[in-house]
Design a binder for these strands. Structure first.
Lengths: 360, 360
DNA sequence: GCCGCGGCGGCAACGGGTTGCCATGTATTG
DNA sequence: CAATACATGGCAACCCGTTGCCGCCGCGGC
């Protein structure tokens, strides 16, 4: 009886338990991984002994043969962006329920960093959720070939996807602005590598067509408050009465930038954001925005991933689309009539006509 | 020559490489893990073959013998709280530099959840950073006995700690309010399980003593905007002209709650927060707050952890303390003179005297 | 010519579970 | 009562690297 109270400083293994419970190591193993495969009394006894000895199965050793680590990776574009907090929550909730641990990877808006991190982590996890990936389609497919992958906020053939109904959100925003008398909407673009950015712009184009509202695009800008403030400057050069921003952070930056330059929101310009982050409710004026079901995005994607890991085919047909809704607050208002002037009253510089400029 | 182009669908192992390079598996292993131990030409040849075959060493198998997974865990109290974003950034930066992957765990402000997650993850990681842990001291020590641990935002004997100079921050805030004519400061407490919460209150007590400012405490409240709004209600029952909140989110909630009730900030009440989150700069009025070096906290803690993992003793003497600074913005102002009245002008209810009430 | 030593590579024993297959004993069936 | 099926448990191989130790070889020293 070598291990009376506890083996010295070592970890307790199935061998220790086996010795103590007077069975073979394989039986101990089975008592935990395939309880039906062992007599229930024996199993109970083993569990008792294991509990007494403080045995915990070593996940690495298990993973070595089963190649299942019970870990999934969640890759997000920018942890600094509050939208991801809720997504992470949703994902972790589902993962924890399924006894999975989540490895969070912050890509810092960098294609390169993201690839490197994914590369490094891939072999250690059972599956990957790519939330707002900045990688190329081909890179994603490459990854998907080696591990179960679910892509969030991006549609991609042959890979399971979860997206939000951005076209509908944009449409609702456009309708809202149209009802307020705006006949021209400026889209302030976010990162080109962002898939929703393209969708939102194209949806606006389409909505503009149907609703007979003129649209144009400026940008791209960084999807942050600073990016929004830069956009505000450009907005002065090419004035507008209604702005749809790629996301809330930019929208807030735009409001701040505009205010600093003496432009009144929503008096002179209406601003609509995207995401409905917490801060949208605390800026002045409170931000009208398209709300996405963040938590649901994270949980849906993860749930889907887990079923794939469990062996389900991972239907790659149509992407799963989650509903959005327009939250109307105080940053949008009826268009300033500015009688007798085609351009809003706050224009000081000569408006620059023509299509939007694109930064390199 | 069994594996011409590539073995069917299997992973490439050192055995495949060994066969192809005509050496023994151990030599392949050494070529990667101890290059000096093998002839440089042989090593080069092995590397060539490995490259051609697409060999990647399996981190799990390696971990099994070396018991080093190249992963660390970072446990945070609430991913919804933006302070942690920067901390995570700092930690991940350092970790990535050292070729470590970060497992992020969100404790959701729950002692129980945190313990469970740590328990589950502990055996898979080489070390743990506990940022604002809600666990008990003894639970933390238990964990620290099994793995290298660095604690952030909490001081604890026998465990390496990184903290911010909150006493100094509180002191500066008190001085600032004192200079504005406030002779009474109300501390709005956050979670009791939060270590800094205690420190901040005690520091305020002390500062009040020295500066001859009366202090009291209300709460605890949840460290969120909602918690702040609840606090605002209580503030109406026990009015104050100067408030120090546990953190920025609560401070923002307080401002909103007060505003809604017709109380002017900073006209009637000055509010100071803690952390300097991004939103502090976008509320109206912009929030005066004690700024902590978030990024540095994360990176310092992680750096320390990595040295411990590399075998350094992990000096457990004094905790490492990081400087803070007071950022004065618009939520603090000279005390409303309210001539002829001892209580601020907005008091409608009879003030309740005596020490602060504690919620259970 | 013999000995010692350093460089290099291989053998084999791990690490801690998992699992296919077989042996035993008991229950069921004809 | 024989034959078959099933429930249990053990054996041993395996997952994929890592590493202690040993052997071989060539070289320099005495």
């Amino acid at each position: 009886m070598p291990d009376q109270t506890r083996p010295p400083g070592q970890r307790v293994t199935i061998y220790d338990v086996a010795l103590e419970a007077d069975v073979s190591p394989s039986t101990v193993s089975r008592a935990f991984s395939r309880p039906s495969r062992v007599n229930s009394e024996t199993a109970e006894r083993i569990r008792q002994v294991a509990g007494r000895l403080g045995y915990r199965t070593n996940p690495l050793a298990r993973a070595l043969t089963t190649s299942r680590t019970q870990m999934i990776a969640l890759v997000i574009a920018d942890i600094t962006n509050p939208v991801y907090a809720e997504i992470v929550r949703g994902a972790q909730e589902v993962a924890a329920d399924g006894e999975y641990t989540t490895v969070l990877i912050d890509a810092q808006e960098s294609d390169r960093l993201e690839r490197a991190a994914v590369e490094r982590t891939m072999s250690t996890v059972d599956g990957i959720v790519l939330a707002s990936s900045r990688m190329s389609d081909s890179a994603i497919r490459m990854v998907a070939k080696q591990r179960p992958v679910v892509v969030l906020n991006r549609a991609l053939a042959d890979v399971p996807c979860v997206v939000t109904d951005d076209p509908r959100g944009v449409r609702r925003a456009a309708e809202h602005l149209g009802e307020l008398g705006h006949d021209h909407i400026t889209y302030v673009a976010g990162p080109q590598a962002s898939w929703p950015n393209g969708v939102r712009w194209r949806s606006l184009l389409e909505a503009g067509m149907e609703l007979e509202i003129k649209v144009r695009q400026i940008g791209p800008f960084s999807p942050t408050m600073a990016g929004g403030e830069r956009a505000a400057q450009e907005l002065c050069a090419r004035p507008a009465t209604a702005v749809l921003a790629f996301n809330d952070q930019m929208a807030i930056g735009i409001i701040r930038g505009l205010s600093r330059m003496g432009v009144n929101v929503p008096g002179d310009v209406s601003v609509v954001g995207f995401d409905n982050i917490l801060a949208a409710d605390i800026v002045t004026p409170r931000l009208t925005t398209v709300a996405a079901p963040l938590y649901a995005e994270g949980s849906a994607a993860t749930r889907h991933l887990l079923t794939m890991i469990e062996g389900a085919p991972g239907h790659t047909g149509r992407p799963m689309v989650l509903p959005v809704r327009l939250v109307v607050r105080d940053s949008t208002a009826a268009r300033n009539p500015s009688p007798g002037r085609a351009r809003p009253s706050w224009v000081r510089q000569r408006p620059v006509p023509g299509p939007a400029a694109h930064l390199p």
